[in-house]
């Protein structure tokens, strides 16, 4: 049985209790945070378990690497606390179940992971993906399953993830380039947190794009546009990848606007919050987020996660910003794509 590497002693020693104090959705001061975390550690009930919107952020806030969010998920599941209606979780469980409908390209030692998101093969084209586009894996058999963190279903992750790792390793892949943050976060945070060995290297596609753009430097025409970046919930599992956003923007001559909701203080797309907590919180988060982008003078909203893009792309557009995925933005810089309309 896979056990979470969580050390209660680290929490006791913690001076900041940042995991809960910094939470954007629950109001806790340091003392309250300590008490509630202790309750959670002890397996007692805490309002945190009920009111958590599953934004993943406390995984990033905790500088001790102690996985407070994974513990919350474990405890929610143990107590039968449902962060979202049962039917939504059931839908995900059934939808993501491996059923032999995966596709594997001409896989080499270095391969792309398309999750089972149909838009990825359409994005992973052109010079940026020269020589690797055909080396891909796609399908539920390779799906990281991190989504179940939103539904208090750690058991599903523990059940399916080891097999996923095995499926990928069996293909002889030595380096997996993850096009979805969830995938990267799973292999670099979630799997190690449960002592799962990942026998291949994983690279965040930001890093891949950055390296590729450096190779194509001569073809880059500075975009000279003002960008807001939409950070997804799953990037909280791999905060170290954040600098690549600025690195890429610098390379392509784009300017990131100064925002209130940035980095640790970023707001997610809120569509998962909508399903779990209802429209009131979700609308408020989206309103604040979009107003912040507009106020900061952004012309574009740059997406990392395709689900964020599909969920709020329209809303971004209605606020007068151009929604674009970061891959398309890079393609624009090398002249492979024209600027989208609002």
């Amino acid at each position: 049985m896979l056990q979470l590497n969580f050390d209660p002693a680290k929490c006791i020693a913690c001076k900041t209790q940042d995991c809960l104090v910094k939470c954007q959705y629950l109001r806790l001061d340091k003392d309250k945070a300590k008490t509630e975390m202790q309750k959670i550690i002890n397996g007692e009930d805490s309002f945190v378990l009920h009111d958590c919107v599953t934004c993943y952020a406390c995984e990033e806030y905790c500088k001790m690497g102690n996985h407070p969010f994974y513990l919350i998920v474990e405890r929610q599941e143990g107590k039968g606390i449902l962060p979202a209606p049962r039917s939504i979780a059931t839908m995900w469980i059934n939808q993501c179940e491996p059923r032999g409908r995966f596709t594997v390209g001409k896989v080499k030692e270095r391969a792309l992971s398309f999750c089972f998101i149909p838009i990825f093969p359409l994005w992973a084209t052109g010079k940026l993906f020269d020589g690797i586009a055909s080396s891909y894996i796609m399908g539920e058999e390779f799906f990281c399953n991190a989504v179940f963190l939103h539904y208090a279903k750690m058991s599903v992750i523990k059940d399916r993830l080891p097999k996923v790792i095995e499926n990928i390793a069996k293909l002889g892949i030595k380096e997996l380039i993850c096009l979805h943050d969830e995938c990267y976060g799973t292999f670099n945070s979630l799997a190690p947190a449960y002592g799962m060995k990942v026998p291949f290297k994983t690279t965040h596609y930001f890093e891949y794009l950055y390296e590729k753009l450096k190779e194509l430097k001569d073809e880059i025409k500075p975009l000279n546009v003002k960008l807001a970046y939409q950070r997804p919930c799953s990037n909280r599992l791999s905060p170290k990848t954040q600098h690549f956003v600025d690195d890429i923007f610098n390379l392509i001559g784009a300017h990131r606007v100064k925002r209130e909701y940035v980095g640790e203080n970023a707001l997610c797309c809120a569509e998962v919050i909508r399903m779990g907590q209802g429209y009131k919180i979700a609308d408020d988060v989206q309103k604040r987020n979009l107003e912040d982008m507009v106020k900061a003078g952004a012309e574009y909203c740059v997406f990392n996660c395709p689900m964020c893009y599909l969920s709020i792309g329209d809303k971004v557009s209605k606020r007068g910003l151009k929604p674009i995925h970061i891959i398309d933005l890079c393609k624009m810089a090398i002249g492979e794509k024209t600027a989208p309309g609002v």
Binding site: L82, A84, P85, R86, S87, I88, M91, I119, E271, V272, R274, M275, G276, G278, M307, L310, S311, G313, D314
Partner: peptide
């Protein structure tokens, strides 16, 4: 449908644009 949503017996799916 808020009461049903709160009881967790049902919920709205966020339907992506596509």
């Amino acid at each position: 449908l808020w009461d049903i949503f709160e009881s967790r017996d049902g919920g709205f799916l966020s339907v992506p644009a596509d």
